[in-house]
Structure formats: C-alpha cells, structure tokens
C-alpha cells in the first residue's frame, strides 16, 4: 500500500484538483516522470500531455497544456497553463480542433506550423484523457 501525498493541479483559471493521491505520472519535457510519496524536492518543466494520478487503485486523468511541477515537503504542485479533467472536456470540440490542426499541418501554412502542431498536441491529449 502506497503512502498517499497531496497533489494540487492549478491553472490560471483556477484550481482543478487538490487531494490525496498514491501515485502520479506527469509529462515532463524530457519524458514522463512518475512520483511517489517522499520524492526528493524537484522542480521540472512539463510538456503538453496527460497527468495521471492514482488513488486507491483508481486512475484518473487530467489533460494539461504545458506547465511546471514542484515537489517539496511531500507535496506535489502542478501549475499548468491549461488543465482539464475528463468531465470538463468537450469531445466534439476537441475532435474538431484535431481536424483543423491536421488540415493546417497538411497545407503547411508556413508561420502557423508551430501553432498548428501545438494545437494538435493539445487536442490529442484532450481526446486521450477521455479514453
């Protein structure tokens, strides 16, 4: 049985989640990071992707659009530029966004390529959160 610790996920629009969890996996800029209780103090950058946390054997997901992670005093704080739980995501909107981004990438509209790519990543992570 893992020791629970406090996880907080906050976005500029407000706190999305705060509570005890047993285990959390975050999308670090250089690959996924798994964090258990009593992790060493850590500051890390996060990429667009999915935060998965486990509580009493149940896994939940939060889609984030990049951000920061801090671990200190057995507390994990995730500051995400955007953060949405599965309940907050509108599937049809995410799908439409994915379509749009893919189309733009196919057309290769010069300057917007980076933006389209970022949009695609966000849409994909939202859709994965739902599945």
């Amino acid at each position: 049985m893992a020791t629970p610790f406090l996880l907080t996920v906050a976005a500029p629009a407000g706190e999305v989640f705060t509570g005890e969890v047993d285990f959390v996996v975050v999308p670090g800029v250089e690959g996924e990071l798994g964090i258990l209780a009593r992790h060493a103090p850590l500051i890390a950058g996060l990429a667009t992707g999915i935060v998965r946390y486990e509580r009493e054997g149940r896994v939940r997901k939060i889609s984030i659009g990049g951000g920061f992670l801090e671990v200190a005093d057995n507390k994990v704080t995730i500051l995400a530029k955007t953060a949405e739980t599965a309940e907050m995501i509108d599937r049809s909107r995410a799908e439409a966004a994915k379509e749009r981004a893919e189309q733009r990438l196919r057309q290769k509209e010069g300057t917007d390529l980076l933006r389209a790519e970022a949009a695609l990543k966000r849409a994909l992570s939202r859709l994965q959160t739902l599945n």
Partner: peptide
C-alpha cells in the same frame, strides 16, 4: 533544501519566466 531541477535551471527559467 536542494532541488533537483529538470531538465536544467536554464531551461526551467525559459519556461517559468514567460509563464
């Protein structure tokens, strides 16, 4: 205490400051 900084302080600043 000492923090582990991932990937590096420079990259972290690059991300944190605009944010």
């Amino acid at each position: 205490g000492e923090y582990i900084i991932e990937p590096s302080p420079a990259v972290m600043l690059d991300l944190l400051l605009p944010g």
